[in-house]
Amino acid sequence: MFFLKKNRWVWIAIFLSVGSRSTLAFHKDMYEPRVPKAIIAQEQQVQSPYPVTPERIEAGRKIYFGVGFCVTCHSKDGTGVNLPGHPSRDFTDVKWQKLRTDGELMWVLKNGSPGTGMPIRVGTDINEEDGWNVIQFIRTFEGK
């Protein structure tokens, strides 16, 4: 017990360090894929079963700003909100848009992004068709 009292500040510093989101965030490179390496090739081949249409983009916009809660972290203009810990994805980044496939984005919507604040959305807040619509809307941010 004496050891714990004597080193109380050390233990507090360790606890805060281990518990902070920035410590837990493991994506040091913002262009690093979020899909596990073992399945990324497979997920990159996945394509939306829905054609890109203005109606689907509009449906995706409504979900982004509504029940999908995307705007909370990714902002109204898609640049991302500056949150403590892992930064939110910037959907206006042309390089990121070209690197990430729709299949990868769907994987993140279905599985979340460990080490970040991105939760599972498809199957909790929205269905898979809604997810594809959101992806179509996210693509409209490229280069803005």
Score class of each variant (00 low, 15 high):
81 V>Q: 14
61 R>Y: 08
97 Q>M: 06
38 A>E: 15
120 I>C: 00
57 I>F: 03
123 G>V: 05
69 F>Y: 12
119 P>L: 11
51 P>F: 07
110 K>T: 01
112 G>D: 11
37 K>H: 07
123 G>I: 04
63 I>D: 03
115 G>F: 04
75 S>I: 05
122 V>P: 04
99 L>C: 00
45 Q>W: 03
64 Y>P: 05
65 F>Y: 15
118 M>P: 06
88 S>M: 10
68 G>Q: 12
104 E>K: 05
35 V>L: 06
51 P>R: 09
69 F>W: 12
113 S>P: 00
60 G>H: 01
116 T>S: 14
69 F>D: 14
86 H>V: 02
111 N>P: 02
124 T>E: 15
44 Q>T: 07
78 G>K: 03
53 T>K: 11
94 V>C: 02
50 Y>H: 11
79 T>G: 06
115 G>A: 07
122 V>W: 06
87 P>W: 13
77 D>N: 14
44 Q>L: 02
40 I>E: 09
42 Q>T: 12
45 Q>L: 11
110 K>S: 06
102 D>G: 10
39 I>H: 07
116 T>Q: 11
65 F>H: 14
103 G>N: 06
91 F>N: 05
45 Q>F: 00
66 G>F: 09
110 K>A: 01
62 K>H: 09
64 Y>H: 10
116 T>C: 07
125 D>G: 00
108 V>G: 04
93 D>W: 05
108 V>T: 15
90 D>F: 03
46 V>Q: 09
61 R>W: 09
50 Y>Q: 07
112 G>V: 11
54 P>R: 10
35 V>Q: 05
65 F>W: 13
41 A>K: 15
67 V>M: 13
50 Y>G: 02
73 C>H: 14
57 I>P: 01
61 R>G: 00
55 E>W: 08
98 K>G: 00
118 M>F: 12
115 G>V: 10
80 G>C: 07
84 P>K: 13
72 T>R: 15
36 P>L: 05
